[in-house]
Nucleic acid binder design. Structure first.
Lengths: 302, 302
DNA sequence: GCATCTAAATAGGGTTAATCTATTTAGATG
DNA sequence: CATCTAAATAGATTAACCCTATTTAGATGC
């Protein structure tokens, strides 16, 4: 149990610096008896004399207290720094932002976002954690991350969301596929074909849900949790796929050409959102990052 | 103006360490609403959210507060150290003792005192300041020193004194002096002889006062503020002197033999005292040093 | 799905502590 | 010796702190 307060130390140091209780009182905008009582109490609580009172000529620190006074100064300085740190994190845009990101979104969007952030807010350090939607949501709840960049799908309660981009799913075909000749493709045309499913939550249920909402059931020929593997399998003619993430370039890692076609059906788009805890008021850094995201994605959409 | 208290930080850290307000309350022996209110107030005062509340599963620190929490821990640790420092300086005998010493007393008495102190209280560091009686007294008032080793002569008001040793003045003669043959000497015999005066305050007035109290006036042939120079001048036959400090050995720095004789007259002895400020309650270290002094000087007297 | 459990928030009241103004004490100074 | 300066004290007011009792709300088990 601590037997002193920072306020008391402030008073003490002011007394020593000004050389009198009156001076300290003036400096700190309190009355002289306030100082007198506070110092007396501090001396009692610590069980040591701190000041020598010279009636008409102020006070001086007593020899045995010199070492305590030194530590008290350190303590007050650290306290001031703590205060400053809290203040500046409220006003200036300096500090660390921890961002959780649904892993498949990261390679496509984060490089551009980070570049923008560094440009506009060079003093903000971004710490990125990549994981599943579930992991991101848990990170938010655990306080590990302040914001999450996710699809607005299967998110738990208690999160606020800022929609950033609405993406229509697209069909991937090997360029040699018979349907590749068409400009648009319908779910009906695809339903009987072998499909390569991106098998990660929540994408899995989203893609299969597209068919089910139209009364079809896709034929899953292959599953993979890796976007690049899915593209590779499609490139090698093992089936078509439906994806929302579209990397620049239509070539797979092993050099095959892909044909990418829009869906004819009007389906529910995937929504990329920035989310955070409802119970956690976003700070200035979070707000800054939200603006950067909004700018960046609105530019992507146009 | 600091907008937080150490108590609040204690509560905060306890919440984080125990993971719940209830746990913190139990740990710190206060009620749960006390913690709740204190944290809420702290968050308001600092303008930042610190904890994420999960209704039935306690709290976690929020990401943006991680850095603040780190500093808060430092602050609390330093505060605990400060407290410990104050506590131990009250009980254990560890620390620094600043001693003012009337310079002529130093070479005779301090070596033995310091050796004893080191022996009995090895963790007490002694800082010695040598100066005039006046300087020592001012050092006490200024808080530079805690104790003073002085003659109880011409001391200002406001000091308490512990008498350590009562010393009779002694007559110094060149060994070849005509009076050196006598076992004792009276002031009357000396009054007409040339005198070498140790000319430092308060010794000066003490020595001349010895004669004046008997109705004589000494013939001052030489003056010096240095004890060794006085002894040297006497050794070379330039006069007698009266001193209270008697170094071991009756040879001057330049090799002359001195004769040292007691005074026949009953005069006021010089009293060596340990003094301190009346307004300043002596600490444990001061008390320890006083005991060491009492032991040492009582041994000298016997 | 409903009851139970856990933990945080809120309400209301009582006690302590901090601060104020006014006055007194006491050493320093001319 | 009167005056000045600064600390200490007295007494009253206010704010802060902490308590018990209760409510809210999410999590968990049957």
């Amino acid at each position: 149990m601590l037997r002193f307060t920072l306020r008391q130390l402030e008073y003490l140091i002011a007394c020593i610096d000004t050389g009198s209780l009156v001076g300290a009182a003036a400096q700190l905008n309190v009355s002289q008896p306030t100082i007198s009582a506070a110092i007396a109490k501090l001396e009692n609580q610590l069980g040591a004399q701190l000041l020598i009172r010279h009636h008409a000529q102020g006070v001086v620190p007593c020899a045995s207290a010199q070492v305590h006074i030194k530590t008290a100064r350190h303590l007050l300085q650290l306290a001031a720094e703590f205060q400053l740190e809290c203040d500046s994190s409220g006003s200036e845009l300096t500090g660390v932002l921890s961002l959780g990101c649904f892993a498949p979104l990261a390679p496509t969007y984060l490089p551009g976002l980070i570049a923008r952030l560094n440009d506009q807010y060079p003093d903000v350090e971004l710490k990125v954690f990549e994981g599943t939607q579930r992991e991101v949501a848990e990170g938010l709840r655990a306080g590990t991350q302040q914001l999450g960049l996710v699809y607005d799908l299967d998110l738990p309660e208690g999160l606020y969301k800022h929609e950033l981009l609405s993406v229509q799913p697209q069909v991937l075909l090997p360029s040699s596929h018979k349907l590749a000749a068409k400009k648009q493709l319908s779910l009906q045309e695809l339903a009987a074909e072998p499909m390569v499913l991106l098998d990660v939550s929540p994408s899995r249920t989203y893609f299969t849900g597209l068919f089910q909402s139209q009364g079809f059931n896709p034929v899953i020929a292959h599953r993979s949790s890796s976007l690049e593997l899915v593209r590779g399998l499609v490139g090698r003619g093992l089936g078509y796929s439906i994806l929302v993430t579209r990397p620049a370039g239509d070539t797979t890692y092993d050099g095959q050409k892909l044909a990418i076609r829009p869906l004819r059906d009007r389906v529910e788009p995937s929504r990329i959102s920035l989310c955070g805890l409802e119970s956690s008021r976003p700070g200035n850094i979070s707000e800054a990052f939200r603006r950067v995201c909004a700018d960046y994605f609105s530019q992507l959409a146009s």
